[in-house]
Design a protein around this nucleic acid. Structure first.
Lengths: 219, 219
DNA sequence: AAAATTATTTAAGTTTGTCTAAATAATAAT
DNA sequence: ATTATTATTTAGACAAACTTAAATAATTTT
């Protein structure tokens, strides 16, 4: 099946939002793709026609088996390019998403298998997310949570969900990046701020707002 | 200026056809881009509006200085990706064109400068064509001619202009590839066929049709 | 359970890049 | 210098992916 860039982006977004099983709503998808609900409805009809999703009016969207397979191919391409950009071109992890977003739409089995080989067939990308293999199989995603909901004491930073440059600059200033190990010192209940410590750095206090956008997993 | 993929392809094709100075005709451009003359006229109006070309009804098209700059950026991206595919992913020179055709449209100064650096800032691509630098400067193109028009005796293969798999298979069978050194043994005037010899191979006779599609330069 | 709110869909219109068919201009042939 | 041919442009339409505004369905609130 030959999909347009827009169609691939819808499939990928549905995959991301579906997260397990429940149907994806029109609104959620519109928000994710920065488009309007009416556009989502239009596209849903088209993707249903192509048997990539199941969709009934007012009932939300779920990927069909073919849809899931397609999604995994796009995810594989995206994550392999991220590896390339970080490992070979020395980009930092927060820069690569947008570029990979474009590179992922170059559809060529051969290109992707050669790229994977060139990178040493990596199984996780620079954000710590697993890379599907050519058959769509991958390790189960790490149990990430946002920092404000973490219950373990010692944690590793796995991603930053908000890509705004303000947040990235803040994290940069505090030497917090992918793979940084943190220790939670205290929760302050009156404003839900969190005091954390990075090795060799003074302890710092982080607002709930910031904590919500830092993804971590237990060490 | 933010150009669409289609616009970039037009600019690149105009650059390719302009070859020196003379204006590009509507028909030639339509043929090159595998589209219809009417579509070319439409696009010409748009590109003129954006000041990338000069164009007057029935007078053909030439790139403006900005247009040329844009074209060189696209050519730079294309040729760097070709280097990457051949040098790092072990593609053969005849496979890379289509892939580079897609990769070239990922517009990021930083990506391209990093890629160039990663490749060791190459100045010629796998087809022997010069790669423009970040400022659009490049070595002057090699004096290629098609094999049927070559006047020197000893030649190097620099490109194959027809990308059909039939021709590529033929060349493969005869061990002729980019960089192969040939010697012209004889021209047969009755059908313009050419007898050539590759080192360590028996001499072979090539039709005019084939010779027209093999680009060479004097050794 | 009715009213209010929110979510979703439909209808109609836009833009980009294409197309076909018809009209016009430029060039070549007699 | 007409006529014929070829090249180019215009006009009108189409598909993809989007938009806004209005209509309808689903969900929540009271």
């Amino acid at each position: 099946m030959n999909l347009s860039v827009a169609e691939e982006n819808y499939i990928k977004a549905i995959y991301k939002l579906q997260e397990g099983e429940q149907a994806v709503t029109t609104n959620a998808l519109a928000y994710e793709l920065e488009t309007k609900p009416a556009s989502v409805t239009d596209m849903a009809k088209k993707l249903k026609e192509k048997k990539l999703i199941s969709y009934e009016k007012y009932q939300g969207i779920t990927l069909s088996p073919e849809g899931r397979k397609t999604a995994l191919q796009v995810v594989r391409r995206h994550r392999l390019w991220e590896c390339f950009l970080v490992d070979k071109l020395s980009f930092s992890w927060e820069e690569v998403h947008e570029l990979a977003e474009e590179l992922e739409h170059v559809r060529s089995e051969k290109l992707i298998s050669r790229l994977s080989e060139f990178l040493g067939n990596p199984v996780i990308d620079p954000h710590g997310d697993p890379i599907p293999d050519a058959n769509g199989r991958m390790a189960k995603p790490r149990p990430q949570t946002s920092l404000d909901q973490a219950n373990a004491r010692r944690l590793v930073v796995t991603a930053v969900s908000d890509q705004s440059s303000a947040l990235l600059a803040f994290l940069n200033a505090k030497s917090i990046k992918l793979g940084t190990q943190l220790e939670i010192i205290a929760h302050y209940e009156f404003d839900n701020s969190i005091e954390i410590k990075v090795k060799h750095q003074p302890a710092i206090t982080i607002s709930e707002q910031v904590a919500k956008n830092i993804m971590v997993r237990p060490l």
